[in-house]
């Protein structure tokens, strides 16, 4: 059975890049264009992992992570941040909110595959 990954990013190209890299390795990808859409989709899918951007309209990545970590049903889902923000404050904040990994854009597809495999294989 394919592992299901939710990719939340407001950039259609980034959603495409991540989907491209991960579907090639046999993962099933669901996408969301912001935190709100991600939260709407989470209950409908049996997710194995979430990859999220931080800068997003409506609900940003920090808020999305916080909401997931506060929910008993989904709090164990591994979360990878994929953002162009790379200051120590933002990285520490993201990890403190409950992310498992932090990747900066532009990302190396091999690194994202490595991080995903770390939690799913």
């Amino acid at each position: 059975m394919k592992k299901v990954i939710l990719v939340a990013d407001d950039s259609p190209t980034i959603r495409k890049f991540v989907s491209f890299a991960l579907t090639m390795k046999g993962y099933e990808i669901i996408t969301a264009s912001d935190g709100m859409e991600a939260l709407e989709k989470i209950p409908n899918e049996k997710l194995d992992l979430i990859i999220t951007d931080l800068n997003m309209p409506n609900i940003d990545g920090f808020e999305l992570i916080k909401t997931i970590r506060e929910n008993e049903l989904y709090k164990e889902i591994p979360i990878i941040i994929l953002s162009s923000l790379g200051s120590s404050e933002e990285i520490e904040k993201g990890m403190a909110y409950g992310a498992n990994s932090y990747l900066v854009k532009p990302f190396d597809p091999k690194r994202i595959l490595y991080e995903v495999a770390k939690y799913l294989n």
């Binding site: 950039s11 190209t13 491209f20 162009s84 854009k105 532009p106 990302f107 190396d108 597809p109 091999k110």
Partner: peptide, 14 residues
């Protein structure tokens, strides 16, 4: 694979 890395320039410029 490398094309995907290079094309991320679009997201940065956006």
């Amino acid at each position: 694979y490398n094309i995907t890395l290079s094309l991320q320039v679009q997201d940065v410029t956006a």
